[in-house]
Design a protein around this nucleic acid. Structure first.
Length: 468
RNA sequence: GCCCGGGUGGUGUAGUGGCCCAUCAUACGACCCUGUCACGGUCGUGACGCGGGUUCAAAUCCCGCCUCGGGCGCCA
């Protein structure tokens, strides 16, 4: 039986124990003495005398002998109590703690084939650092399920479960890979304001706030700011950051605070933006496949997980509605100009069976800042990138010509003056540019087959949830 | 915003008018058990979201409220 290993650490990421001793509790000389030489359970080697610290996962008392399973971020280790041969106080303390209490145990590690991980610790001393209450609001050992709502109310305990922790390790890896891919493409990471004076499009619901007595809003997208930056000396930028939407929807795929992965570049067109989009999503999958095998295993996905290979099919809007109509899944046939209903998206996704783009949308159903085709102004350069189950990305070539931009505002019933901070920069040399916004949580959700987008956020904000 | 469906011990559930001072699992408490690994065994503690109504009788039916989930619309 193989030992529980430190998640992901052996696959290229830095490992404290490889650099020498555990540094986590050594860098600060003011840490309690007993923490300085703490050893991760996964690093406890037979013959060593170690101090391991973590949570009491389970106690199995067989009478004359008892086992305490101690869990930390690296895995679990068995602590053995032989009652006749050990100090009574030590036994009483060790076996008297409630599950999920934090303890530290110092003792010798021995090879033991009968132990779950092949090694076990015989305690010489034991400290109860933080006792947990007897009744827990959810069961971190996973023997009894908890509903999502209960889990979100008790996220700390929820993330003591390997399969939940794995989602966020993977999320971190996705964000790392995405940043690396953007950096490889010479894009500069930027951070734009989340408190703004005006919305991006005006149509979508915004969260109003008071800003020193003035009306302000939480930003629903970095769209306008990232466009302003392609005209700057940076030329090509990306941002991974929060967006806020006040829509009162109640679905497993919407959040009121979400993470948007945004990209925008000067001197590229919408087809090149699609190339970047494809590269970024593929890079995220490949990084997870390469560096997160333990996490995929914890989620039971080790066999089925597969990075997309090759190019994503690019369907025009017209082809898309024809294919949807051909599936016969919809009661009414779609006609040119219709937005794609959820049911249609699903039918098409099933038909295509992989990530794909929908291009050449009718101009009228795409936002004003998306450029129309030069040879056909009824056709937009806007594109969506779809996972078979849902929309992940929206992007396009942007309107960089001042006159056309202002006309677009007016056509959508927006007051160009309210956006003067934005439009005026189009008078001083704005290059042609394109980009996209990718829903970070939707990427994680579809990648891991999560049933609810809230599972991809530590502390989701939805229509009814404002805390924790 | 419109529509639909839920809320039963700490947690997850069974229970569609009387068989329910409510089922099962897990947790918790006590006791037994020297190799467990979802340890096992015996006993015990613990719940019908809130308010009102119908009825001889309500967890169960009705109304309001609170709360959770979902469908549609919408969605960078």
């Amino acid at each position: 039986m193989s030992r529980v290993r430190l998640s992901g650490r052996e696959s290229g990421r830095s490992n404290a124990s490889e650099r020498g001793e555990d540094t986590m509790f050594k860098t600060n000389g003011r840490e309690p003495r007993r923490m300085r030489n703490r050893t991760y359970t996964a690093d406890a080697e037979p013959g060593d005398t170690v101090t391991v610290a973590g949570w009491v996962h389970e106690i199995r008392d067989l009478g004359g002998i008892a086992f305490l399973i101690l869990r930390d971020t690296s895995g679990k280790i068995q602590v053995k109590f032989e009652k006749d041969e050990m100090d009574d106080d030590l036994v009483e303390t060790g076996l008297g703690v409630h599950r999920e209490s934090v303890i530290s145990v110092t003792g010798e590690v021995a090879e033991e084939p009968r132990a779950p991980t092949g090694v076990e610790v015989t305690p010489e001393s034991l400290d109860v650092i933080a006792e947990a209450e007897a009744q827990l609001p959810l069961d971190p050992s996973g023997k009894v399920d908890a509903e999502l709502s209960t889990r979100l109310d008790n996220r700390t305990l929820d993330l003591r479960k390997d399969e939940v922790k794995a989602i966020f390790e993977i999320r971190a890896e996705v964000q790392r890979a995405v940043r690396e891919q953007f950096r490889d493409l010479r894009a500069t990471e930027i951070n734009t304001p989340k408190i703004v004076a005006t919305g991006t499009e005006g149509g979508t619901e915004l969260f109003p706030i008071t800003y020193f007595g003035k009306e302000a809003f939480m930003n629903q997208s970095p769209q306008l700011f990232k466009q302003l930056m392609v005209g700057s000396g940076l030329e090509r930028v990306f941002e991974v950051g929060p967006i806020f939407r006040a829509e009162e929807h109640n679905t497993p795929r919407h959040l009121n605070e979400a993470t948007s992965i945004d990209f925008e570049s000067a001197f590229i067109d919408h087809t090149e933006a699609m190339d970047v989009c494809e590269a970024v999503v593929t890079a995220a999958y490949e990084a997870v496949e390469e560096n997160c095998q333990d996490e995929l295993e914890a989620l039971g996905l080790e066999d089925e997980f597969e990075a997309p290979s090759g190019e994503f099919p690019r369907l025009t809007y017209e082809e898309a509605i024809q294919r949807i109509n051909a599936t016969g899944e919809l009661d009414e046939q779609l006609v040119w100009g219709d937005d794609l209903p959820t049911e249609g998206e699903k039918a098409l996704g099933e038909d295509v069976g992989e990530h794909y783009f929908i291009t050449d949308w009718p101009s009228e159903i795409k936002p004003f800042y998306i450029k129309d085709h030069d040879d056909d102004e009824t056709l937009s350069t806007g594109f969506d990138m779809m996972h078979p189950n849902m929309e992940l990305v929206s992007g396009g070539q942007r309107e960089h010509r001042f006159d056309h931009l202002v006309a677009g505002f007016e056509q959508q019933g927006l007051d160009p003056d309210a956006f003067e901070y934005y439009t005026k920069m189009f008078k001083y040399g704005m290059p042609p540019h394109a980009g996209f916004g990718l829903g970070g949580e939707r990427l994680i959700m579809t990648m891991l087959g999560l049933e609810n987008i809230r599972e991809a956020v530590l502390f989701p904000r939805d229509r009814q949830r404002l805390s924790p």
